[in-house]
């Protein structure tokens, strides 16, 4: 506790960096997965799915250091980590996005079409709202693993909460490691609560019907 109190500003600074390096990939990866699900022809879905589940199997440190050889980025620094984490998010969000839209009841889509909604209106007013619970559930899983995986970025020189593990181990300060663990846990919980709240705000009808019953 003493260590954490003495180094509070430093931990806070690392926490902000950690949050940023988790949020950016979460956003980029989800948008990419969404585009893939909605815009690629259905016959490619199988190939994309197989590719993503293979990528998902690769340990993160291996991706961080293999990316420079594949795309020519520099070995150290946040670029590889952001790209790699985005690909992981895309890999997991591809499946949850596909399932979320797949679970939209067909009658709802047919009725909307029969009422004369344009494809855009159908998407904005029917499909997207009904897919939100599935999308949020997928995002919660992706967020938790991204926040914890981001710490491995410290090994390739990214300053985030993972740095506390490396530094604490080298300098033999257990409190430093525990502070890192606790801070990452807190960020994960905070993001989870945030996403749950977002889901609730975006689907007001689920609450109303629950109250009536």
């Amino acid at each position: 506790m003493e260590w954490a109190a003495k180094n509070f500003d430093f931990v806070l600074q690392l926490s902000v960096a950690h949050l940023l390096i988790s949020l950016v990939p979460l956003f980029l990866g989800s948008v990419f997965a969404f585009a893939l699900v909605r815009l690629t022809p259905a016959r490619l879905a199988g190939t994309i799915g197989t590719t993503f589940s293979a990528i998902y199997a690769i340990p993160s440190l291996a991706i961080f250091v293999a990316l420079p050889a594949v795309i020519g980025t520099s070995y150290l620094g946040p670029t590889n980590v952001v790209i790699a984490l985005s690909v992981y998010v895309a890999a997991s969000m591809f499946f949850s996005t596909r399932d979320a839209f797949g679970q939209v009841p067909k009658p709802a889509v047919f009725i909307a079409r029969a009422q004369g909604l344009s494809p855009l209106q159908l998407f904005v007013h029917v499909e997207l709202p009904l897919a939100i619970p599935g999308l949020i559930a997928g995002l919660r899983v992706a967020a938790a693993s991204t926040v914890s995986m981001a710490s491995i970025g410290a090994i390739v020189g990214v300053r985030n909460l993972g740095y506390l593990f490396l530094d604490g181990f080298q300098r033999k300060i257990p409190e430093e490691i525990l502070t890192g663990l606790f801070a990452i846990f807190l960020i994960g919980i905070a993001m989870d609560i945030g996403l749950m709240a977002l889901g609730r705000v975006l689907t007001p009808w689920t609450r109303r019907s629950a109250q009536r019953v």
Binding site: A144, V147, S148, G162, F165, F169, K172, I177, L178, L181
Partner: peptide, 19 residues
């Protein structure tokens, strides 16, 4: 299973070796 997802495996390993 939900708590385990939020715990970084790297930190867990380092903490256990240290402790």
């Amino acid at each position: 299973s939900s708590a385990s997802r939020a715990i970084p495996t790297m930190g867990l390993m380092f903490a256990l070796v240290m402790l």
